[in-house]
Design a protein around this nucleic acid. Structure first.
Lengths: 149, 149
DNA sequence: ATGGGTGCAAATGCTTTGCAAGTAC
DNA sequence: GTACTTGCAAAGCATTTGCACCCAT
């Protein structure tokens, strides 16, 4: 199985792009400890590790990582992007707490079946889906319950 | 059954807010002919009908319409919001064409069942969901097919 | 009368871009 | 050597906000 480095290098080569030290650093950092993250968190994280990479380069590199298939961009109803690993992770969807913002991941294979059926009916060719369920997580529900009761 | 006007007026009254001519005009226009629309489209549309309502008021009023439950905000992975009718429409989800941007709506009740199960497992209390399937619509798939073949 | 509403223009927050200098291949 | 890259600062875009004047209740 190809490593994330190999996948990224292969992608870059295929597009006649270069594997720079900045791209290497971002790739490492992204897969070192993050799950969900935002561009700005990555910037701060890199700075804390003494890597001074500009915002512009971070945005440009994240776009390449998405195109290479290693990352996915997810938008949770805010106006900025979150990123999550595709490499090494099974496809999953999200529960988003409206109160505290917590994000819970879940995997549900039956969604793929529904997707296939819906697509057949609508003559649509799917390549991915995003399901997001909004509501309250256990903690916030309990707090809310007390507040109401 | 309450009309959209009644629902909005009731919401406004309950929050001690006023029913101004601007809010009336926006409410009418939104439910007159749009399905999906963006804030800016609404502005242009109002201007074409000789109503000069500022951008600020449009954004402020759309937020109220969402809170009153008449509209829903949907974000399709772009960085700006789309709005769609809740009033008078069954809950539905979307197929989004990656090539031409076309949006096809579909209704699939089995998603609610999956949602219930997932929530039970994760001790989560859902109030809504959004499922978005990305891929290619029939037209774009055929074009793509020819291009490849 | 008065607390909320409006338009305007400036501010915001995230993201993109133009440009001159640097670097991988 | 020559594209491609980088950092910086400026621009872009959708949306929000401060403020002085206006109006529904």
């Amino acid at each position: 199985m190809l490593s994330k480095d190999d996948i990224f290098k292969e992608y870059l080569t295929s597009k006649k792009l270069k594997f720079t030290s900045e791209r290497q650093a971002i790739l490492n950092r992204v897969f070192e400890n993050h799950k969900h993250f935002e561009a700005d968190e990555l910037l701060v994280d890199l700075r804390l590790n003494d890597m001074k990479i500009s915002k512009a380069t971070i945005y440009r590199t994240l776009a390449l990582l998405v195109k290479s298939g290693l990352l996915r961009e997810v938008i949770f109803g805010e106006r900025h992007a979150h990123y999550e690993h595709v490499y090494g992770h099974e496809h999953h969807d999200h529960l988003v707490c409206n109160n505290c913002g917590k994000i819970i991941e879940f995997t549900e294979h039956r969604i793929e079946k529904l997707q296939d059926e819906v697509c057949r009916k609508n003559k649509f060719t799917a390549d991915s889906h995003r399901l997001q369920i909004q509501g309250l997580c256990e903690d916030c529900w309990e707090k809310n319950d007390k507040a109401v009761g």
